[in-house]
Nucleic acid binder design. Structure first.
Lengths: 206, 206, 206, 206
DNA sequence: GATGAATGAGCGTTCATTCAT
DNA sequence: TATGAATGAACGCTCATTCAT
């Protein structure tokens, strides 16, 4: 998302600054994934990163900003990979299958990110106590899926169904596939993803 | 220590003891649902219940036991209702549809329980830092669903598919239906449940 | 200020609660007087009182409430004593002299309170960064003094002068008398007070 | 270490060094005046000056030295102006009136300096916890005033009074005039100063 | 000369738990 | 049974200072 434009006038972070932020984000991901959001104190993250506690405060405005950056970077990585895998596909059936498989493929190599993302989504709250992320944050994903469903319905590939329910369900199915895999590391993620693709193809098709 | 049961080995509780525990559990559910697990301190729960903080410590060994009782009681309520609704049904298709609808029906009247359950599942960890509940805790639900799937596959109602993936998916679909409903209270829960029943019927059938 | 009415329905603090608050306030006064507002951390106050840091948080909503209680109790003590000493006096000249001498008399036995009050006045700020106390807090004192000046001007005892300037000046003269005394403990406070009374009598009289 | 003066033993500073120090002192004055001593962190002062935090540490041995320089420069400015205004005057009455008016005249144009000076006086403490400035620091001012009082007493202009009490009082009266003005910017400082001059003339005269 | 990065101690506050009454 | 008092550890965060570049 951040510009790598050499001619732009926008200020950019120094190399060392960027490296530190990345290091801290990585440490945060590992600690959150392992110990859970509630135990992921700045002290613990700093210790895991091998740095002083104050360094985090120096590079991030606060814990909130750190959490947001974890989400941002992780999401960015997923989106980038999935977009690439879906490029050039045209039918709704193909797109949906590619979507499921691409997310699974990417996550297979980023298990901790996955767990951390879930922890943050379920726990991170604003100062006013409202969840910072959550179902309402998934709106973008829902709309993307709904777009594919409508494509399929208009092309005749898919039957008539409630696209919102289908989007919520498919999104949940994918999320839980990862949760199950996280709890059962020997579970065959790719096979699961293929089963899911079949499942939703059958659930959608005319 | 506090009671001795004359006819059996299992310990029993006095009426007043039982009432206090129920009151505290109810307060805990409301606080967790509203403020989240992280903000649900014993002080806050006690205040919400209109009792002294020490009472909780008196009736429960610790916060952990309280959380476990919240889960136990909530789960018990769901199971009781769902079992009743499924009684007498014989085909896998019927059983699965009844399952989805019964859970939805029960939860419609217990929104706070639902939210609290989710918070606890996602946050409660043992002293060693491992999640106390989670995907592995759902094993019983998975096996129940798998039992139905196999019934359907043997009777010819259902096609051949990976029953574990289907169970994980259907379970997730139901959980997320509630999460979505919690975030969008105007959402039509019963319609969603019916859509889900259709969806999985199509996904399963031969 | 707090009612000691036995029949009133208003809730009152328990004896032990009141004692702890008084103890903490006393410790705060001593620490602030000795080390200054900036060094008067809750940890230091607690250590001085021989209690755990958490006790202060238990009995006071926060540091701000503690500081306000210090001011309240100290001010109350001064006002009570000065009022008693001025009772029955009628001429402006008498009232002003009694005022100066009574404040000095009271403060002679409460040196630490005096110093703490000054520290808090000069340093305690609201969350928004504005001074919590300060010149504007002295308004009540100014108006009391102005009332006496006007009495003297109307009775012909005093010449015509700007009562606000005189009030600000006399108030400052008294405050600084204490500050000087605090820095020079061997200084004769009563003699100073008498000189001040003479000084302002000459400055005011017709 | 950074310079060697050819003609005297006293160390001198380069032009750029001097400019930097002046810039930092000016920024410190503004921040202290606005936010108070307690909030005047080096980071905040540096940001206000538009420089890096380390620059302050480079030019000053520490925060203490910076504070001392603020006081020194501010005091120097006042003294310079007051001395000029008193030059050529001979009677004690004239000198005292000129003193009060000159200080007021100068401060009218240096409100932030005034506020900063007060903040530092009331808060700045040595490493051992003792106030760095305070009543005892005013000794020089007291002695100057006392010198004038004695002149007046010897010439017969003034009555017999305790010169120390008068000096402390007049000094406090002037300080508080500024404090009042700082809190009530619409207050007429010059009129106040004239009232003060009258007041002390009457308080002193034979 | 100047900088930004890093440190570590200390801050006010929250909290689960213990305990005497 | 029930309470409120007390504890002590941990939390996120701020800060003056140090230092390599």
């Amino acid at each position: 998302m951040r510009s790598e434009n050499g001619t732009s006038g926008q200020k950019s972070r120094s190399f060392i600054e960027e490296a530190r932020r990345a290091q801290i984000v990585a440490a945060a991901i590992e600690v959150i994934a392992e110990a859970g959001y509630g135990q992921a104190s700045l002290a613990r993250i700093a210790k895991h990163a091998g740095i002083s506690k104050g360094v985090i405060s120096y590079h991030f405005a606060g814990k909130d900003e750190l959490m947001e950056e974890v989400v941002e970077r992780t999401y960015g990585g997923i989106a980038e990979h999935v977009m690439a895998r879906m490029e050039g596909l045209t039918t709704a059936t193909e797109l949906l299958r590619a979507y499921v498989l691409a997310v699974a493929e990417h996550m297979r190599g980023h298990r901790a990110q996955l767990a951390a993302l879930g922890e943050i989504f379920h726990n991170f709250r604003d100062a006013d106590g409202k969840p910072r992320y959550g179902v309402h944050t998934s709106e973008q994903i829902y709309q993307t899926l709904e777009h594919f469903y409508r494509m399929g319905q208009e092309s005749g590939e898919f039957r008539d169904f409630d696209v919102r329910v289908m989007a919520v369900t498919q999104s949940a199915a994918i999320d839980n596939m990862f949760a199950y895999w996280a709890a059962h590391p020997e579970h065959d993620l790719d096979a699961h993803a293929n089963e899911l693709a079949d499942l939703f193809e059958r659930a959608c098709r005319a």
